[in-house]
Computed example of a mutant assay.
Amino acid sequence: MTTMKNPNPSSSKLALLSHIKYEHLVAGISGGVTSTLILHPLDLIKIRFAVNDGRTATVPRYDGLSSAFVTIVKKEGVRGLYRGVTPNVWGSGSAWGFYFLFYNAIKTWIQGGNARTPLGPGLHMLAAAEAGVLSLVMTNPIWVVKTRLCLQYSEEHVADNKRYKGMVDGLLKIYRTEGIRGLYRGFVPGMFGVSHGALQFMTYEEMKNRYNQYRNLPIDIKLTSVEYLTFAAISKLIAAGATYPYQVVRARLQDQHRTYNGAWHCITETWRHETWRGFYKGLKPNLIRVVPATMVTFLTYENVSHYMLRPAADIKLPS
Rank of each mutant, 00 (worst) to 15 (best):
V26N: 02
L81R: 01
L44G: 04
Y307W: 14
S67P: 00
H306S: 14
Y153F: 13
V296P: 06
T268Q: 10
T177E: 13
N303Q: 13
P245H: 02
L136V: 11
A95Q: 06
V194P: 13
A68L: 05
I47Y: 12
K281A: 07
E274A: 12
V168P: 02
Q200P: 09
R163H: 14
R83N: 06
S67R: 03
R116W: 15
V145T: 04
R148N: 00
A95L: 10
Y301P: 04
G186I: 05
Y62H: 02
A127F: 00
L253P: 12
V249Q: 08
S195W: 15
I142G: 00
H265L: 01
K236I: 03
G84R: 10
I45L: 00
M191S: 04
A159T: 04
G182L: 11
S18T: 06
V89Y: 00
T297N: 06
P118I: 05
T139N: 12
W143R: 10
T297L: 13
H273V: 12
V226R: 09
V78M: 11
G132W: 09
Y260V: 03
T270E: 05
F201S: 13
R176N: 11
K21A: 11
T243Y: 14
G54S: 10
A239L: 09
S319W: 06
V59Q: 05
F231D: 07
F201I: 15
F49L: 09
H257C: 05
L171R: 09
P311S: 08
I234K: 02
G31A: 02
T268Y: 15
D43I: 10
P292I: 03
A95H: 06
G120V: 06
